[in-house]
Structures are given as structure tokens and as C-alpha cells.
């Protein structure tokens, strides 16, 4: 847009703006400020509800309730990249392993069904040696 056209456009805008009654302008600015604030709050709260943004946590759970055979999952929302799991029951280690899981990923780990009665425990440890465990009473 060349300078003359731009100046003409600005001049038309200013003259139209001057014709708006002051009260209308104030009320419009009031509502406009609300819209801007609401947009900011919308962005901020959506970001806070994002499971990955600014968060450091991971969870473990059985893929199916009460079912060992369906396995369990680790859902990672942290900077940890590797998780070590151990399945134990009846005083024995039934299975173990290490899985890489990127942030935002959920990994299901299959388990073979076990005949062991009593508590079967799955313990998961991250790179910082933080542990969580879930267990099934059979």
C-alpha cells in the first residue's frame, strides 16, 4: 500500500472514530478489554490443563481392572525417558524389564497370566529412582 493510500485510509478511520459517541467508545473498550482478558485466561487455563505442559509426573495402572493378563501401562508426562519395571508375587520376581517412553506417550506392557495366589505387585522406577507400585489381590 503506498503512502497516500495509507494516509487516506487512516484519515477515514480517524474521522469515523471521532463520530462515535464517547459513551459508546467507553462501553466498547470495556467489552473489548474483557474479550482480551478472556482470551488470555482461555489460553492460560487450556495450557494448565495440558497434561504435558510444565508438568513432571507419570502414572501406572492396570490396563483392565482386576486383570493381570491384559497387562499394565505407564503413561509418561515427565522428562524421564526410561522406566524399569518388576513384577513380583509369592516372594519371587516374575518378570522385569526396561522400557523407553517419551513424554506424552503411553506404553502398555503385556504380562503373562500367573497362577500365583495372593498379591502380585508391579513396581516401576524412573531414572531418578522414584518408584510407584500397583498390585492385584487374588
Amino acid at each position: 500500500m503506498n503512502g497516500n493510500k495509507y494516509r487516506a485510509l487512516m484519515s477515514r478511520f480517524v474521522s469515523r472514530a471521532k463520530r462515535i459517541a464517547p459513551e459508546t467508545a467507553l462501553a466498547s473498550l470495556f467489552l473489548a478489554l474483557f474479550v482480551v482478558s478472556a482470551a488470555f485466561l482461555s489460553w492460560k487455563i487450556d495450557r494448565d490443563l495440558d497434561p504435558d505442559y510444565g508438568k513432571e509426573y507419570w502414572v501406572i495402572a492396570f490396563e483392565e481392572r482386576g486383570e493381570l493378563s491384559s497387562g499394565f501401562f505407564i503413561e509418561n508426562h515427565s522428562d524421564e525417558a526410561e522406566f524399569t519395571y518388576t513384577v513380583s508375587g509369592g516372594g519371587e520376581t516374575l518378570a522385569s524389564g526396561t522400557v523407553p517412553i517419551a513424554r506424552g506417550e503411553k506404553r502398555i506392557i503385556d504380562l503373562s497370566a500367573s497362577d500365583i495366589a495372593g498379591r502380585v505387585t508391579i513396581t516401576v522406577e524412573d531414572g531418578q529412582k522414584k518408584k510407584k507400585s500397583i498390585y492385584l489381590e487374588r
Binding site: V59, A61, F62, R119, K132, S133, Y135, L136
Partner: peptide, 11 residues
């Protein structure tokens, strides 16, 4: 308790 299974663990 042996009556409860922990099925989900978060922080």
C-alpha cells in the same frame, strides 16, 4: 489390607 487392590498409582 488384603481386601484391596491398588489399580492406579499417581503422585
Amino acid at each position: 489390607s488384603s481386601s484391596f487392590s491398588r489399580i492406579y498409582a499417581g503422585d
